[in-house]
């Protein structure tokens, strides 16, 4: 067997290995299940030990927090309700805005563009404060929950509009031509040809956006909507148990966002095989 080094250019062996090989190199073959399992067990044990050593002294007040479990539960249900409502509403806003941005009627097109650019250029907190204390107050709309869902939907709708617009634009010219050639009208073209293809394309980012809505709904606590973060904050104020209030808070959000994230990955994998 010739030594592989014999085939290398002279001086090659003097080139040093890239420094952080464990960071920059790509794995040459998939890791064995045993290695994966051992790594996971080791890491879980290690991080748990670290957390125990660091925080065990400050976590001893589970009983008083447990008494507020109904508050947590109600907050969690509200968060789910708000997120679901905002997803539906922002999807509707997104579709209408995306279509408006392609409209031949200029005032409609410009309004949609101004809405998208403004909202995407502002932090959500600013929108929440301005929307609630500014606009909603001025028009006398006092229903916090309604205002909160509307603001969240308007915020998320701008991002969804851009996803849908990109999705529509990615459908090739020849698909529009084919649809016209077989005699479909505009509405039929969108319904039977464009939207089915757009849906397949934007499902992964849309699922990601749903996860964002769940997380962003936490900001509604600043206008006093009793969602999950608001609930945890309340429990913290009542019991002076910061860790015991906020650890369940984090777990409750992860219980919602992790399944969505896994679902997104599943959709992405399925799409890859189908196209």
């Amino acid at each position: 067997m010739p030594n592989p080094v014999d085939f290398m250019a002279p001086g090659f062996s003097s080139i040093s290995r890239d420094f952080p090989g464990f960071l920059l190199d790509r794995p040459s073959k998939p890791a064995s299940p045993l290695a994966k399992g051992l790594a996971i067990i080791f890491l879980v044990a290690g991080y748990s030990l670290f957390c125990w050593l660091a925080f065990s002294k400050s976590i001893e007040n589970w009983e008083s927090v447990y008494e507020f479990r109904i508050t947590f539960w109600n907050g969690w249900i509200n968060t789910i309700g708000i997120s679901a409502a905002a997803l539906g509403l922002s999807l509707l806003i997104g579709i209408i805005t995306a279509l408006a941005r392609r409209s031949p009627f200029l005032p409609l097109r410009y309004s949609a563009a101004a809405y998208v650019e403004t909202v995407r250029g502002l932090p959500l907190v600013v929108l929440v404060l301005f929307g609630f204390y500014g606009v909603a107050n001025a028009v006398g709309w006092q229903d916090r929950l309604g205002v909160g869902i509307t603001i969240l939907s308007l915020f998320s709708g701008a991002y969804i509009a851009e996803m849908i617009r990109a999705g529509i634009e990615s459908v090739s010219r020849s698909q529009w031509d084919s649809a016209r050639a077989i005699g479909l009208g505009s509405f039929q073209t969108y319904r039977f040809v464009i939207f089915p293809q757009v849906t397949r394309q934007i499902l992964p980012p849309l699922a990601g956006q749903f996860s964002s809505i769940i997380k962003d709904s936490s900001l509604l606590y600043i206008i006093g909507i009793p969602e999950l973060t608001f609930a945890a904050n309340q429990v913290n104020s009542a019991t002076y148990s910061t860790f015991e209030s906020f650890v369940p808070l984090g777990i409750c959000y992860l219980a919602l966002t992790l399944p969505v994230s896994l679902w997104t990955k599943w959709i992405e994998r399925r799409m890859r095989y189908e196209t």
Binding site: S172, S174, Q175, D177, S178, A179, A181, V193, Q197
Partner: peptide
């Protein structure tokens, strides 16, 4: 009408 390619709806 039939074009050069991509006539069919992929979905």
């Amino acid at each position: 009408i039939v074009f050069q390619s991509f006539n069919l709806f992929p979905h």
